[in-house]
């Protein structure tokens, strides 16, 4: 076998070897935890700082604009901001722009309210605190006091109580979502007369205090598609609602112009962005430990290194084999 043939073989390597390599480097870091440090960037810090300034008088939207496909990237972002909001007692409206995304919203709630999650929140159903609501106890702190006076005890490991209708409203999916955003600039209740669990939104204290998007302080769209721009077009441009983007890594570069133009307050790009938010939460004592995105960064490091090695290998073969002198080469088919 001549030397040229080796280089040619290297260039035309069966892509299944590459797939195998990626498979291996994706699995191994799950067993060997490197825990490499993640440094935060200003794009993510600006979202964190903004949310951190808010309190129980404010409200935010978290829009689940992603399908299960991109949930590995998008879910940690939504979960991180949700936990930050719950920690600061900021009421959270949750929406979804597609039926499948509705399922993602419920999955996120399930995760944050699940006692097996480290640093979970104890959820109180809308119906369960009906008597207190009807007695006019709707402020967060008086509500916690009254609730605990009724003999309810915060489970061990839980970071706090969250009351449905006071701390969050799972609004969910509504068809033609861009028009729903537009409608919510006038009234949230007309767009969502009931929430995802069939509760009347008109009875929810948080909807009585925040009737339209004008009375909301931020919307995070954790998005796997171009739907994130709807929030800018219909909410930001119409009435100046601050928007934060949570985007997949592939999309992230596409949306930098919105950031530079000041149309969004910040942007979390891919797993890295989510990991940065998790680091900020942990560093500031909001969550006891970092979460899935941070763990995933090891995998991403390993995969990027492998891709770079492959590129170097390809170029060595390209030059050593003398292919740079030829005009065209189609390899790998």
């Amino acid at each position: 076998m001549s030397a040229v043939n080796i280089w040619e073989k290297m260039l035309n390597i069966d892509r299944r070897w590459i797939f195998l390599g990626i498979g291996v480097v994706s699995i191994v870091p799950f067993f060997i935890n490197f825990g490499m440090p993640v440094r935060t960037t200003r794009e993510v810090e600006s979202i964190y700082d903004y949310v951190d300034e808010l309190g129980s008088d404010n409200a935010i939207f978290i829009s689940f604009d992603f399908a299960p496909g991109t949930s590995a990237e998008n879910m940690p972002m939504a979960v991180a901001v949700m936990r930050h909001a719950f920690y600061n007692d900021i009421p959270v409206f949750m929406t979804a722009n597609y039926p499948l995304h509705h399922g993602m919203m419920l999955a996120a709630m399930e995760y944050v309210f699940n006692p097996t999650t480290e640093g979970f929140y104890e959820d109180v159903d809308f119906e369960d605190w009906k008597d207190l609501r009807e007695a006019g106890v709707t402020g967060k702190y008086e509500l916690i006091e009254a609730w605990e006076n009724q003999g309810n005890q915060l489970p061990e490991g839980a970071l706090g109580w969250v009351f449905e209708g006071r701390d969050y409203a799972a609004l969910g999916y509504a068809p033609v979502f861009n028009l729903v955003i537009l409608g919510m600039t006038v009234s949230i209740e007309t767009q969502y007369p009931v929430d995802a669990h069939g509760n009347s939104t008109g009875e929810m204290p948080m909807l009585q205090e925040h009737k339209s998007l004008r009375e909301v302080d931020m919307a995070l769209t954790s998005s796997g598609s171009g739907a994130c721009v709807w929030w800018v077009t219909y909410a930001r441009e119409k009435m100046g609602l601050p928007i934060a983007f949570g985007l997949t890594a592939v999309m992230a570069t596409d949306y930098f112009p919105y950031l530079q133009a000041g149309q969004v307050i910040g942007q979390m790009g891919g797993l890295r962005g989510a990991a940065e938010y998790e680091v900020l939460l942990t560093e500031n004592g909001i969550t006891p430990s970092t979460d899935k995105a941070f763990r995933g960064m090891d995998v991403q490091s390993a995969a990027h290194i492998l891709i770079i090695l492959l590129i170097i290998m390809g170029n060595i073969a390209f030059f050593a084999g003398g292919f740079h002198k030829k005009t065209l080469l189609k390899g790998g088919r």
Partner: peptide, 8 residues
């Protein structure tokens, strides 16, 4: 809205 945070 950020109505009341500064009130305290």
């Amino acid at each position: 809205m950020r109505k009341n945070w500064i009130v305290v």
